[in-house]
Design a binder for these strands. Structure first.
Lengths: 217, 217
DNA sequence: TAGATTGTTAATCGATTAACAATC
DNA sequence: TAGATTGTTAATCGATTAACAATC
């Protein structure tokens, strides 16, 4: 087993959550024309310890070079690839209310690889609209659309009451992941990835910090 | 030091992040008319271990009763108070684009205690609009408005390039916390709370899980 | 080569889980 | 009282940090 290929051991969630942040800082450095950076310099910028940075990166491979550091562009590309940002994702947004519309307008900016193909809603007053050149379709046709257009990701922007039903349909229709903005914990099959954005949970956490119950004030 | 009052030791972030979730489940139980619940029953619902639930709650006080369990409504109220949801927060949203507008329409639903007083933008085509009965004001007047209206929280929905400048102004004007949606890590004074919602980071995490680099597939 | 910095092992720290005495 | 379940201490597990040998 002297194989150089990394065993694909389960990477901890804590590590994964830090990857997009590494990528952001590397992108900035790249933009500034910085060629190389050491774990120590990166630590000063990003706030993680140099040790943690080296540990994190070595989960995926030896991207650095002793005595030199890391090549900024190379590392940026590696992390992008690890995150799966070297391919395209076809998405649908279910729920064309304010948030769904905002995401339809924004998501394609984040990175060209995320393409919103359609929005869906049950409200007949929204069906037929075009948001950022994307059609709002009747939620009736969700499953068929997802199947025939090979949609990768479903974004749920409905109320919490219909979110699970939508999730079931999306999973049945074959999406690989769900980005959930509804205030509910969804049940999805093991092979479907789930990422939650619980905005009110986040706001409540802020309220906690502000309220002084933290004992720090 | 046989005082019954809990020492306000620093509560770990992991615990705080779970509180809104406890609250959500307790709210549901309350709605269903459930009076009491044991840590074991709650564990089955919520997915944390019973041991963790008891540990978490005991950071704040002994809310349960041996041989009985926890009173649902009582515990709900306690957690709400710990989170600081028993008071009102005056907020401004800076950046009246799609996301800012969406939040202006949504946030007050989350809980009556969060009141958006005004939106701000630099774009003259947005200034003067009314979103959900909330005025869009000229960003010029931000500091003065926050000061004279005793705003508690600032919500940043601008691009990453202006986010730090806005944060500085908000802090200078005296907000107690910032809810940041811009894709940048902000610097704020110690006494100002900061909660980030990095949507693209979240989307990239989803891409990672879906892409199969996880080694689980 | 000498100096620098990684990759990786070992030590520490913190968070989660298990166990059980206290007590309702 | 006996049974149930908490509150809390102890054990375990995992993640972070420190240290240093490998090596560019």
């Amino acid at each position: 087993m002297a194989n150089k290929v990394k065993e694909t051991a389960k990477i901890s969630n804590a590590v994964i959550k830090r990857l997009p942040r590494y990528r952001r800082y590397l992108k900035e450095l790249k933009k500034k024309g910085v060629d190389k950076i050491s774990s120590n310099e990166l630590s000063n910028l990003i706030g993680y310890t140099a040790s943690q940075i080296r540990q994190d990166l070595n989960n995926f491979g030896g991207f650095g070079q002793q005595g030199y550091g890391y090549n900024v562009e190379g590392l940026y590309n590696e992390i992008s690839a690890i995150l799966g940002l070297d391919r395209e994702y076809k998405m649908v947004i279910v729920g064309a209310g304010n948030l769904g519309q905002a995401l339809a307008n924004y998501t394609h900016y984040y990175r060209a690889g995320f393409v919103v193909k359609a929005l869906f809603d049950v409200n007949p007053r929204l069906v037929g609209l075009r948001i950022n050149d994307i059609d709002v379709l009747d939620a009736e046709g969700l499953v068929e659309y997802v199947e025939s257009n090979e949609i990768d990701l479903g974004i749920i922007c409905t109320t919490k009451d219909s979110a699970q039903e939508i999730a079931d349909k999306l999973c049945f229709a074959g999406v690989k992941g769900i980005w959930n903005f509804a205030q509910v914990d969804l049940e999805v099959p093991n092979h479907v990835a789930l990422e939650n954005v619980h905005l009110s949970d986040s706001l409540y956490t802020l309220a906690y910090k502000v309220s002084g119950n933290e004992g720090k004030l």
